[in-house]
Design a protein around this nucleic acid. Structure first.
Length: 432
DNA sequence: TCTGGGGTCCTAGGACCC
DNA sequence: TCTGGGGTCCTAGGACCC
């Protein structure tokens, strides 16, 4: 048995904790560069703001709706997330943190009324953290996901499902006939693992609801689609195919990619950006105690600027030996950049992806005949500690551009709230 | 003017091996 | 006329997730 705990409109809810005046108002949180809406309050959803809708289009479409937009503050959301997870963990013996706002919890061996227990945890998260959650409970992870969707819909859109399923939906507690009724009231596109493409193919076959998918024959699904969809179908039938992954292994690739605040044309600007992205990726790599064997770098123009000449190119470079050294990784990334750069284009985005990751203590010994640059492990450690203590960017490579220089490629974030919970100077102050 | 970022898994097909 | 069989590894691309 699994539970899925999921924060409602998570980023928006985090912002509201520290600015209660935003309650009951249409709010959106924007992606990097203040580009698209990535979290919407119920009021914003009701106004028709779509997921990932560009903010400038929302402003044009609904100029008088009084929608408040905020730049994403991932420091705040990450900290709020870990607080929420620490309470959610009390629901059962094991937990898998699935995303910043979701956790699967094993209910194996938990006795008593699971629905009530889940409701108490939900209330505690609301009271202690201030974030509203929904909980789904079912025999498999896929069904628990769907139960969570139903819990939220029943709460947000009264009449869509029986009212007693609001906030906490325990599919395992429903009589079979009621379960079928709920599944047949749910579109198949809501099922975890069925994206737009597969959904369209299934509709082509005349299927419509989650119940239709649950009635498919696994062998046929495997033959005509894939083992992935077969697992989804079996999970919909109550047969667990996915286990709780309590301790996910180290990442297999680590990326840092960004759109620019404005387009750039010069190699110098791209070099600063690529150098910085490589360093950021390298920091993440050192955090998980790894080394990278290859560096992938890409640059591209904006496909949205239809009038511009388009160009996109990428390259993957192998390292002579795996490393987590920012200077070596940034150097390699910049070498790749010089190989793919073309003059005369307005570049909108670039990125660095570290590949072929291995554990740092797995090292191939070799004779050091042509020293290609020593791994500055101690220097990296010192830099990481300084940046941790005094803030990101305290120590960095000069090739990423010095403060005070142009750095015209950095992203826009004009609507950002303070780091209320992770920075002393941003601590909210209560006045009597 | 203005359009996000970071991942995972699976599969088909090519290269290569004996 | 007729040209084997069995296997591994790697990669690019597609699909999905939040």
């Amino acid at each position: 048995m699994f539970a899925l705990v999921d924060g409602n409109n998570f980023y928006v809810s985090c912002e509201r904790v520290f600015r209660p005046a935003l309650l009951h108002r249409p709010i959106v949180v924007l992606s990097n560069n203040d580009g698209c809406a990535i979290s919407r309050s119920n009021e914003a959803k009701a106004l028709g703001v779509r997921m990932a809708e560009p903010w400038f289009e929302v402003e044009r479409r609904l100029p008088d709706a009084g929608i408040v937009a905020l730049s994403a503050n991932f420091c705040l959301y990450g900290d709020m997330s870990s607080r929420m997870m620490s309470i959610a963990a009390g629901l059962g013996p094991g937990m898998e943190t699935y995303s910043i706002d979701e956790a699967f919890i094993s209910l194996a061996g938990v006795r008593g009324d699971l629905t009530r227990r889940a409701d108490l945890v939900r209330e505690r998260i609301l009271q202690w953290i201030g974030v509203p959650c929904g909980v789904g409970i079912a025999a498999t992870k896929t069904l628990a996901k769907l139960a969570n969707h139903i819990a939220k819909s029943a709460h947000r859109k009264p009449g869509s499902y029986p009212a007693e399923l609001a906030r906490v939906c325990n599919l395992a507690a429903l009589p079979p006939a009621d379960l079928d009724a709920v599944l047949s009231a749910t579109d198949l596109g809501e099922i975890w693992g069925i994206g737009p493409r597969i959904a369209a193919q299934l509709r082509e076959e005349g299927l419509r609801t989650a119940l239709d998918v649950a009635h498919m024959d696994p062998a046929t699904v495997r033959r005509r689609w894939s083992i992935v969809l077969e697992r989804t179908v079996r999970e919909m039938q109550g047969q667990p195919c996915m286990v709780l992954d309590e301790a996910p292994g180290p990442k297999k690739e680590i990326a840092c990619t960004r759109s620019f605040g404005q387009t750039v044309t010069r190699l110098q600007d791209l070099q600063e950006a690529v150098s910085e992205f490589a360093c950021r990726a390298a920091e993440k790599l050192r955090k998980q105690g790894g080394r990278a064997g290859q560096v992938h770098v890409f640059i591209q123009t904006s496909p949205f600027r239809r009038g511009d000449r388009q160009y996109g190119q990428s390259i993957t470079l192998p390292l002579r030996r795996p490393t987590a050294d920012s200077t070596l990784l940034a150097g390699m990334a910049c070498r790749g950049l010089r190989a793919i750069y073309q003059q005369g284009f307005k570049f909108a985005k670039a990125g660095v992806i570290l590949l072929d990751l291995a554990d740092a203590d797995m090292e191939q010994g070799e004779l050091d005949l042509d020293d290609p640059g020593r791994d500055r492990g101690q220097l990296m450690l010192a830099a990481d500690r300084l940046n941790e203590r005094f803030g990101r960017g305290t120590v960095k490579l000069a090739s990423a551009g010095l403060a005070g220089d142009a750095r015209n490629w950095t992203m826009r974030q004009n609507l950002r709230t303070p780091d209320y919970t992770t920075r002393w100077t941003d601590l909210p102050i209560a006045r009597a």
